[in-house]
Amino acid sequence: MSEEEQNTNNEDVATEAADSNETPATGEGAGGDDQSPDLGLILDIPVTLSLELGSTKISIGELLRLNKGSIVELEKDASDPLDVKVNGTLIAYAEVVVVDDRYGIRLLDVVHKSEWIKNVS
């Protein structure tokens, strides 16, 4: 391939990358200092979002004594926000709301995405 053909090919790759907001070398989005990976391939993967009201540690003996009407005190205060987790990783804090006779949540604070990634690793 001649040098002129190679330069033309490199310009075409750069133009295609600019059109798709990706850099040719890394595949990362063009967002200034916020260079984040292109997540287009994983956006449709299902995950489990759960809400943790609280937790406590009990002995197996206490567990075996639980029956209908038993009360288990949790380690979290009633006024504390609830933990929102995706596949077990904390991503946000929320409060419970009722929407059309169903429970929902209102996000109060979202954990920074870099913390999500660090917790998954």
Rank of each mutant, 00 (worst) to 15 (best):
E73L: 10
L108S: 12
L43F: 03
D109N: 12
I60T: 05
D77W: 02
D44Y: 04
V97L: 12
D83N: 15
I91H: 02
S55P: 00
E115I: 14
T89K: 11
M1K: 04
S70G: 13
P24A: 10
T89H: 11
I71V: 15
S50F: 01
I91C: 06
G40N: 12
Q35S: 10
R106C: 01
S70H: 07
E3Y: 01
G29C: 04
Y103R: 09
A78K: 13
E75W: 03
V96E: 15
A17T: 01
T26A: 07
S70V: 11
S50G: 07
V47I: 12
P37G: 03
E3H: 03
D109W: 02
I42W: 02
R65K: 14
G27N: 07
R106K: 15
Y93A: 03
K85D: 07
V111E: 13
T23Y: 06
Q35T: 05
V86T: 09
I60H: 05
S59T: 15
V120C: 09
V72W: 02
L90D: 06
S59K: 05
E95M: 10
S114E: 12
G61C: 00
L64N: 13
N87D: 15
S70C: 05
A30Y: 09
S50Y: 00
N119D: 15
E73N: 06
N21S: 08
E62I: 01
T23W: 03
A17I: 04
E16C: 00
D19E: 11
V47Q: 04
K113C: 01
E73T: 11
V84P: 02
L82W: 02
G104S: 06
D83G: 06
T89G: 03
G31S: 12
Y103W: 11
